Each structure stands twice: as C-alpha cells, then as structure tokens.
Amino acid sequence: MSRFDRKTRKQALVLSAAVVVAGFTGSAAAEELRLITWGGYAPDEVVAQFEKETGIDVKITLSNNEDMISKLRATGGAGFDLAQPSQDRIVGVQRQFNIYKPIDFSRVNTDQLQPSMVKATQDSTELDGNFYGVPSVWGTSGLIVHRSAADTVKDYTDLCDPAVAGQVSYRLKRPTLIGFGFALGMDPFAAYSDQGKYESILAKVEDKLIDCKANVKTYWTGGDQLLALLRTGEVKAAMAWDAGGWKLNAENPDIRFVAPASGALGWIDTFAIPRRSENEDAAYKWINFVMQPEIAAKITNASGNFTAAKGADAFVRAELADAYRASFNDAAINNIKWYPPVPPGLEAVEGQVLDRVQAAN
C-alpha cells in the first residue's frame, strides 16, 4: 500500500468515526424540532410545508397544560424544543420548577402579531424582567345568542333578564364568576392581588347568580350538551366559547357568538422555549413560519380557533371568517379581558362560592 493510500485510508477512518460519534451525540437532532402542543395547532399540511422549506423534521407530541407541565417538570425542561402552554400557566410553574428559558424577542417577527396580544402575553408571562411566552392561538368566552334574544342579551348579566327566563345556560365554573364580575362594573383581575377585595367582588357575583337561578334551563357541563340545547332551541342564550358559537352559526345563521359589552374573557396559548431545548433555532423558525397570515389561517381552519397573526382572517375559510368578523371588530378585540396568572388560593375561594350557588334554592 502506498504512502498516499495509507494516508487516504486513515483520513476515511477518522471521518467515518466522526460521523458515528456525531450520530451518538445528537447532531442529527439539530435537524429536528420536537414540539409539544395541542390538537389542531400543527396540521399535517403546515408541518409538511415547514419541513420542505427548512429541511427540519418536526416531531409532534399532543398534550394539554397539565401534561406539558408534568413532562417538562420531570426532565427539568428537557425532551422538547418548543411547547405551547396557556399564558396563565407559565409564571407560577417557572417560578417553582424553572422549566423554561426567556424569549429572545429579537428573534421573533412581532410585526406579524396582534400588538394587544403580544402585550397581554408579555404581561402574563413576565418574571424578573424576562418574558416567557409569545402569543399563538387564542379564544374567548362570551355569549352565544339566538337572534330572537339578541336585543336583550348583550352582556353576561343580561342572561338574568326576565325576557329569557328558562332559556338560559352557563357553567358553574370560574369564567362565569369573572364574567359576571366585569358585567357588574367591577374588575376581578385587578383584585387578584388583594384576596379580601376579590372576595367582596365574589360576594356580589354570588348574590347575582343566586337571583339568576330561576332563569337557568340547566348548568351545562359539556360542550356537546350545550350545542344540542342551542340547536333544539331549548336555550336561546348562553355563556360559552367562541368556537362553539361559530360552529353553530355555520349550521344556523340565527345563532351567533357575541362579544359581551363588558368584554369577552380571553385565553392565549403561547409559544414557550423549554429550558433545555436542543434546537432553539428551529423553535424560532417554527414560530415565525406559522405566524405568517396564510399559514396561521390553516391552523384556524384545523382547530376552529384564531391565532395572534395579523391579517390571517383574510385566508380563513369564508364562513368562519365571516362569523369571526361579526363577533369581533377592533374595539371588541381591544376590549378582551385576558386571563392573568391565578394566585395561590384563589381557586379554592371560587370553588366555595360556586358550591353555595349550586346549593341555593
């Protein structure tokens, strides 16, 4: 074997070894995005387009808030490159478990995003001067109203109007307490930091809900149950989610989702970077890719919920876009009351109020 051949063979062996080592040390992961998210937030066609344009493989794990927290807590923020927790489920978890890293907004194309939602998410996810979330998909609780009750029911407390007695439904859950609080002219979210003040708000809401019991056909517990009540006309007005209202509107134009006068109650599912993400670059590429209006519209078409992307409604399927525009003009968007993080102990107090309302005659 010539000196040249021995040298070439030695270089080839070194290169081969390097490739093997790279495979075992995870370099291949640089071409993979591990995303933990909700159903409908990463449609197949969106994933395929991202993979084609970037060369990055996307591995999807479907989840919910509790499961995301559990998985990331168990690994100290490892196992995923991007997560999508709700905006009010980040700060408390981060303070306790340190599973996320701050968002670098210089890497986020915020020009694509609704400014009010960026602000709401930053306000909800700020900890020690850092922000831990970027707005992604959002939705609201408000009113689903049949045309026959539209002149009567324009805010949560209008569900107690005698004109709709026996034709009303809502859940005995915390959104109802909060919505009624706003409709009564108070600000429950501003009172979160003062439990005594919050309890005084709840006392007024409790009285109102007890007085309102005669109007309630039933307290709904599941979405399918409520949709059936509205379809049959047994219920003419309800407090419920926007996506359910838009679904019914597609079936019957006489039924609409209405943003209440005191403001719809808004949740935002975010993008958050796990603390031990192995492919941050891919995470930011995904965020900027899916928040393009035409791509974001595909997420809305798949999930039924709108995104924080500006102008995406222009590309959403027509019937859903029309229903959205009928529910939310700019003023209604800016009037959304976004859920802040829930302080410890508050939900226990709310639960006691709801139990008393349920038990009242």
Rank of each mutant, 00 (worst) to 15 (best):
G77E: 08
A214C: 03
T110N: 04
N249T: 09
Y41D: 03
T152N: 05
A30P: 02
D155V: 01
E278H: 14
I69F: 03
L226I: 04
E206P: 11
R171W: 07
V205A: 05
F4A: 13
A18E: 00
N329I: 03
Q96H: 10
F97N: 14
Y132I: 00
V216Q: 08
F328M: 02
I69L: 03
D207A: 03
A326P: 10
I295E: 08
L209I: 03
L15M: 04
F97K: 10
P135S: 00
D104K: 07
E31V: 11
R276H: 14
G23I: 00
D5R: 15
M1V: 08
I201G: 04
N288D: 04
G77S: 02
K310H: 07
G133Y: 00
S277Y: 06
C212Q: 06
P260W: 07
P115Y: 12
G263R: 09
I268V: 14
W38R: 13
D224V: 12
Q358H: 03
N334W: 10
T270P: 07
K213G: 05
L82S: 01
S27Q: 06
G55A: 00
V47G: 05
L15N: 02
V108D: 03
I336Y: 06
W138F: 00
S262A: 12
E350T: 09
P340H: 07
A359Y: 08
W220P: 09
N329C: 11
K173Y: 10
L72E: 02
A240V: 06
L230S: 09
A282Y: 13
I69Y: 08
K208D: 09
K10A: 14
K7L: 13
K119L: 15
G129A: 01
S141Y: 12
A309L: 13
T307E: 12
A259I: 12
L202H: 04
A163H: 10
T110D: 06
A17Q: 13
A237D: 07
S63I: 05
I287F: 10
D128T: 01
A214F: 06
A243W: 11
Y41G: 00
L177T: 05
A191K: 14
K59Y: 01
P341D: 04
A250R: 15
S200Y: 13
E234S: 05
V58Q: 04
T121Y: 09
F180K: 09
L209K: 08
G77D: 10
P102T: 00
P274D: 09
S200A: 15
I273K: 06
V205P: 11
L226F: 01
K236D: 15
